[in-house]
Design a binder for these strands. Sequence first.
DNA 1: AAACGCCGCAACCGCCGAGGT
DNA 2: AACCTCGGCGGTTGCGGCGTT
Length: 362
Amino acid sequence: MGRTPCCDKNGLKKGPWTSEEDHVLISYIQLHGPGNWRSLPKNAGLQRCGKSCRLRWTNYLRPDIKRGRFSFDEEETIIQLHSVLGNKWSAIAARLPGRTDNEIKNYWNTHIRKRLLRNGIDPVTHAPRLDLLDLSSILTSALCNPSTLLNLSTLVGSTQALLNPDILRLATTLSSLKQENSDMFLQQLQENQLLNSLLQIQDVPALSSLPSQFQNLVQQVPVCTTSAGPFINQTAQIMQENVKGFSSNPTCTFSCQNSQENFVPSSLNESLVSLPNFYCNSTPTTDPKVPEPGEYSGFQSANNGYQNFSIDSVMSTPLMSQDPLNSSSTYVNSSSTEDERECYSSLLKFEIPESLDIDDFL
DNA sequence: AAACGCCGCAACCGCCGAGGT
DNA sequence: AACCTCGGCGGTTGCGGCGTT
């Protein structure tokens, strides 16, 4: 099906709009309404194509557009909606009065996306990044019990898809950390509850159906005790989910809630009641606004990989909203907003070595 | 002060679906 | 059914501002 250009490009102006052009466009629309965008520039006397006029109006000149920085509530809403809708900027914008899809898209790409990446969260799936976490957990268990290293090569063989030069660099980093200060490193590892959490894997009824290399790895994990951190819980959770993925029993359910309760306040869940909960269970929702699996690839992969993965484990914002400072929606134009957000979001940061250049990972 | 690089955002581009003929 | 027009959407680009060296 052939398509003619939306307008004759010849002789039409492109680039930034002048205030005069803005005035002409506003005046025309105030008199006649938006109407037919194709004929609008001609009728209004603008040397622009209709598409350009429409974009200028909808993204900038519309009287109901809210300018200025995004408030904390708005940012919270964007993250939550993006976890549900993906890059459906117009759908997200429909829930944010006064904000345009273009503005939200820009804000996501320039602020939120980068922050999620810095915090080890995949901005597409809203889940902790598997390539970092899987290897870290494997290496942690391996380093905690050197004999496990023997099986690591077998495991690596079955997870080749996860390996790339960047991940190998992370392995090198972790390895060098161990070599540099072996005692302290091992002590730190033993103080983690990761492996203890991993042993809860016995809750998975179909453990015996795992591939042998995974059984070996699980069985060789030693018990470590004491304080649990977000990273440990997240890692254990993902390991559990991965194990579950190998289960031969498709109806097997495994709640991550136990591992979450260690660091996620119960009220956090309450604050997310309004969210569709397909991160928390695999039951199809009846909410018509929620895309069906397959409609949004990012969601699909998240849903497939983490059918029981709780959304609250990847959403930093509800946690923040507990603080009176952050429950305020009067954040607009606050110069310290970014820093404060960064400070609070660091509560869910993962323990990635500082020597690791995260940008190289992206 | 100049050069350079980074960042944010407005604007553009190309594609798509809906609806009309 | 085929074609066309239009509006809308998401991805990308390019420019100006700003900070750093």
